[in-house]
Design a protein around this nucleic acid. Structure first.
Length: 250
DNA sequence: TAACGATGCATAT
DNA sequence: TATGCCTCGTTAC
């Protein structure tokens, strides 16, 4: 489930629980050497799109990407044994967070942190994101809008479920190529609003009155009009669209 | 209980 | 293009 809204949720939760505290760090699985971090103070947990950065005062950052399978487990008793395969445990005296099956968990020096920031477009959940820059990057992308918003260099944090639902919400077919500044701006505003709802709810929310429902994502029929949902491959992922509510095939 | 696909993407081929 | 992540929910058997 880890699209950007859940990464931000993890960052917020772990910042609140662990930020500013001296931590016990361990790598039970053996694939990540956590010893340099044991006893260090965690300055800040930061989300950038689907990436997490753990900043320490006197040590390089830790970079984590969950990929599709990565998860965090929270233990309110840090004495609990980590389950097999735990890549990283960060613990205070009253809580522990275990990282399982991430696609990336590694030490990042300042240059790597800077390169990561450079590689990502604006993140609709970050207060420092520029709407103008987001519109510029989307408008400048040559291909279909459904490929653009999955490209993390264009916007950071959107995944396949949000692609489907956000494009539905603004009535835009994923194949449309020349979105223009006005529609790009409306799509950005929807992303910022709905990802915030999703972060707070802990799931994709595309209809606040029915948070467990989707409009087209992984549906047979459009939830609004009942027309069969079209599916095809776009940017190596399954795209979903209602031909009635999202006209204008690219 | 097993198979399968999935909300991601780095890495190998 | 294929595969690997100590995964998970749903579906099929």
């Amino acid at each position: 489930m880890p699209e950007g809204h859940l990464i931000h949720r993890h960052a917020d939760e772990q910042q609140a629980a662990l930020g500013g505290r001296a931590l016990r760090a361990s790598g039970p699985q053996g694939r990540f050497d956590a010893r340099p971090y044991d006893g260090r103070t965690l300055a800040r947990v930061e989300a950038l799109g689907k990436h997490l950065l753990y900043h320490f005062a006197d040590a390089p950052a830790i970079h984590v990407h969950l990929g599709m399978r990565g998860i965090f487990l929270r233990y309110d008793d840090p004495g609990e044994e980590p389950r097999r395969g735990t890549r990283l445990r960060l613990a205070a005296d009253d809580v522990a967070f275990d990282l399982i099956a991430p696609i990336q968990c590694e030490t990042y020096g300042p240059a790597e942190v800077a390169a990561l920031r450079d590689s990502l477009g604006p993140d609709p959940l970050r207060p420092d994101a520029s709407r103008d820059e987001a519109v510029r990057r989307l408008d400048a992308f040559g291909g279909p809008v459904g490929a653009a918003i999955l490209d993390q260099k264009v916007w950071a944090g959107i995944g396949n479920a949000w692609r489907a639902e956000l494009l539905f919400l603004v009535g835009l077919h994923p194949g449309v190529r020349d979105v223009g500044a006005e529609r790009a701006g409306r799509l950005w505003d929807a992303a910022a609003a709905y990802l915030a709802l999703g972060r707070d709810a802990g799931q994709v929310v595309s209809d606040p009155g029915h948070p467990d429902e989707r409009w087209v994502y992984r549906r047979e029929h459009c939830r609004r009009c009942g027309t069969p949902v079209l599916t095809w491959q776009l940017a190596s992922r399954t795209a979903y669209a209602c031909p009635v509510d999202q006209p204008g095939e690219g």
